[in-house]
């Protein structure tokens, strides 16, 4: 009994991450997560939990354990190489006023 209580998270339905396309032409965006026994049930539950007010036209689900994430502790070194390359932005370049559209 006690053992069962301690280990009961092992009987939990797996956790899924839910991504929703809010309308045709837009990206799927992370909406949240939920528990479901399998992918089919995850999609059905996602419909009920995350699209009760027509928030979506398409749903992706992926088991949370399959998500690989970058380490926030390494964010500085990870994104540092991009920080001194302002010439990648169009505003870096000065154009004469005569050029109206570019």
């Amino acid at each position: 009994m006690t053992n069962d209580k301690l280990n009961n998270s092992k009987n939990e339905w797996p956790l899924w991450e839910v991504f929703i396309r809010s309308k045709a032409g837009l990206d799927h965006k992370h909406a949240g997560s939920l528990h479901a026994a399998d992918a089919q049930m995850a999609i059905e539950n996602a419909r009920d939990v995350y699209t009760r007010r027509m928030e979506g036209v398409s749903i992706w689900v992926v088991e949370s354990k399959h998500i690989q994430a970058s380490d926030p502790g390494e964010a500085d070194s990870m994104y540092d190489p991009a920080s001194d390359k302002i010439y990648r932005h169009p505003t870096f370049y000065n154009l004469p006023d005569e050029v109206k559209y570019m």
Binding site: N8, S9, E12, L15, S33, L34, H35, D48, V49
Partner: peptide, 20 residues
Amino acid sequence: AGHGLYLYSAAETLGISRDE
């Protein structure tokens, strides 16, 4: 019910299981 579910998953990101 939906609000409860959003919040349970937010709490789970802190390392506590739903069953707990």
